[in-house]
Amino acid sequence: MIVAEQKSLEEIRRIIAPYEKVLLLGCGTCVTVCGAGGEREVAFLNSALRVAQAKSDDGVHNFSEYTVKRQCDFEFLDVLVDKVNEVDTILSLGCGIGVQVVAERFPDIPILPGVNTSFMGMAKEWGVWDERCAACGDCRLAETAGICPITRCTKGILNGPCAGTKNGKCEANKDMDCAWILIYKRLERLHQLEKMRRYYPPRNFRVIPRPRRIVMKADIEQGEDNG
């Protein structure tokens, strides 16, 4: 799940300043789950922006709100066609993907981001989210007992732990578990400690071309089926 965090009201107010009619656009998937940009947060932001407007005298906005099921696919955005014509900008509370898809779908209107897309992670408990995956494109979790050192080790090292581990915690943050200690303990539990003894060479990030694209469909040539 993509985890995002709503931008500060100050920043949002700064970026919407030039526009009068603003559509606050929520997304009903990841950012709903992480409490950054679902219908509830859109409504709250709308209320907060109205208060800000009432209590200051910089510019008059006209806010409207809408939440689509998912911003990261064109088809979900079709319902916005008429609404888009009536506003001057869209403040998307979708993740960075959503913002770009909305921008691509509606080329004639400025799209503004309302959240900072932070990481891919999970809800540790209600109201607390933790990062779990860096989308490195080269998953090594089989060797690390299902615990990702790329995201969960501050240094992201592949052969840990480093000398900064103390009492199972990380030197960078005493409240944070050392990922490599977690990996060690779990491998021990699984009787796979031999995996600790191997050396994992550094990865070559240059081989990953950006932007990445995955093509799942087979490349079928026209006219092949004439047999």
Binding site: G28, T32, V33, G35, G38, E39, K69, A123, E125, W126
Partner: peptide, 13 residues
């Protein structure tokens, strides 16, 4: 139900 993102908020709180 179509709006529910199954975020589990209700279940947790």
């Amino acid at each position: 139900q179509d709006k529910c993102a199954t975020c589990l908020t209700c279940l947790r709180i």
